[in-house]
Design a protein around this nucleic acid. Structure first.
Lengths: 192, 192, 192, 192
DNA sequence: TATGAATGAGGTTTCATTCAT
DNA sequence: CATGAATGAAACCTCATTCAT
């Protein structure tokens, strides 16, 4: 009476994902072994394989769960008119998602090499390309394309690279968005 | 008397570095084994250990050799007046170095997780911070710091992410610099 | 009210045996996992353990069910006079059983190593020895013993090794029996 | 001074093959783990991988080494006239090879299932087919094909199945050949 | 200047099996 | 009658590294 044996309430799958992301982010994908994940959960390695069919499957599932909002954003973006206003909205929402799932995005940035030939590599690239295409105009001059791309990277850089010593998270987001907006504005010929 | 077996002359050390970087960049640091490097050189693994004392030592030596110019740039920057002109010069030179050693920089970006607890991780971060500090004004508002940081990332993004289908390398560098300049200009209050 | 999920009626036990033999024959005993069997039946592994107490138990039960006729044959043989006619009858009946339970016999032949230390290994050997003893005369010269043994192997070889491209099954059985008869005839000194 | 450390004189590769075949024959291919082989040699598993690139590679190398004579026999057979005399010679030589490499052939027979989808499976089948084709006449009636096939199986059966209690090895070989000859004789229409 | 042989640690994965529900 | 969750053991294999020669 009283569940002493299995501290996890029933959602082991979720726990695995949580711990895994934590370790992947901390140590890198390759350097994190399933043994470590299992140990930290006080579970056997085989238990992980009950819930996921491979190491790759773990990270893919986390990725899909955490980047679902981005899919929504892309879908939404495709239905909007390609105005400057839309683009700003996209950048704004995107930066919000980045805040919410910061560890995941940081992980993605730092482990590109490891993920390249996992299924996730392609998924990530696709997602980023989708967003880029919402921002860039196909026939714009190269410098404008760089501006749009940089707007995206400014968000990533500002939110992931800037440490907590440099301002409050919310402040950071504002500053980052200011710069990102500036870049797309320019790309649209809006100088001021 | 003709060197049939090992086409490379006498500088095995250099050859190892070349092949290693090639493979590290292509597959990632963790996924590239010493066996692979040795095989591609048609040499035994033990031979690698004659020239380098560990796998880490290989990558560190490559890193040091290839980022030496950046050291020079930082040293030079420290002696200059902190004018806008200086900063533009720094960005310009830095983008040149990035062009010259593109594979190395791409490798660094994609393998952050792997390098984090190698000696190299710290070195890389230092170098980037040094440059940031040459660009940023310590007491400037946060948005201006983001602008400077983004200038740096714009260069990285534009030169490493943009594929060869998007314009000629030299064109790309120009476009990238245009945007980077714009960002530091703004950071200096130069609007137009 | 309609059995949608499990198309097989109520006799799960039988279904397990069928699928198991199919897979064992196809892939080998060791290489067939309980997971595979369960999956093909759309049932959980634990369900298998409800019906059988171990993997070995599954194969043993199949073996016993399918080789029961051979027991009958041996029993019958023991009651007959040891005439040539009896031996031909035995070979004939045996070849019929082989036709009926071909997959099982093929499985037995191809998995001897795996079965050796399962209870089944001994059972199989016993059964074959029983039949051999019905055919061979204890004090006959060695060459005659080889003839009898070969008669048995001719049946196995002809019916299991010969592909379906080499004649119609019924034709094959006739040809095989012709040769087997020849061999026991000779063993009995009947030359022509 | 004095090689105390490594009892094996330098031909570890050969030792591995010997021990491996011994264990494979004794316990079966699947049930023999590399750990066991390594332990019996007092060597680490990794050492095995220095000499062979996989478990499969070990058995394949053994197979190739030990069945090389059969290749020679087939080559020789192809150059001879397809006379009855030639066929008897083939059976005779083949039975000799079987005596020399009995453990290997026994292993092959008992582990067909395991070997089926290893490279070795195909090789083995090929070799057997080559020999069958040297014995059989393509357009002969089915019963004659069975005779030739049975001649081959008689050799296998007699030499591998018959225990050491049933006559001296050399006697067995003679008896077996007598029966095998009888079968090909018949296949050639030679009655007496 | 290099090689050949080996090691020890550890990786991911799979398996037969159990048991509370 | 069957499932869902988990285990412990063991499998094959790879890696960075060492050292006598």
């Amino acid at each position: 009476m009283g569940s002493i044996q299995h501290p996890r309430r029933g959602d082991t799958r979720q726990c695995i994902q949580d711990v895994a992301l934590e370790l992947f982010a901390e140590q890198g994908y390759e350097k994190t072994s399933l043994r470590e994940i299992a140990e930290r959960l006080d579970v056997t390695k085989a238990a992980l394989y009950y819930h996921f069919k491979s190491k790759e499957d773990i990270i893919v599932s986390i990725f899909k769960d955490l980047t679902r909002p981005v899919d929504g954003l892309v879908a939404w973006g495709l239905e909007q008119p390609r105005t400057l206003e839309t683009k700003r909205e996209i950048l704004s929402r995107y930066s919000g998602m980045l805040t919410d799932a910061a560890p995941m995005f940081l992980f993605l940035e730092e482990n590109q090499a490891s993920l390249r030939d996992l299924r996730i590599g392609a998924l990530f690239k696709e997602r980023m390309t989708d967003i880029r295409e919402l921002l860039e105009e196909p026939d714009a001059p190269l410098s404008n394309q760089v501006r749009c791309l940089s707007a995206l990277f400014a968000i990533h850089a500002g939110m992931l690279t800037l440490g907590d010593d440099e301002g409050h998270p919310e402040e950071r987001r504002e500053a980052v968005l200011e710069v990102a907006f500036e870049l797309v504005n320019r790309a649209h010929g809006v100088t001021e």
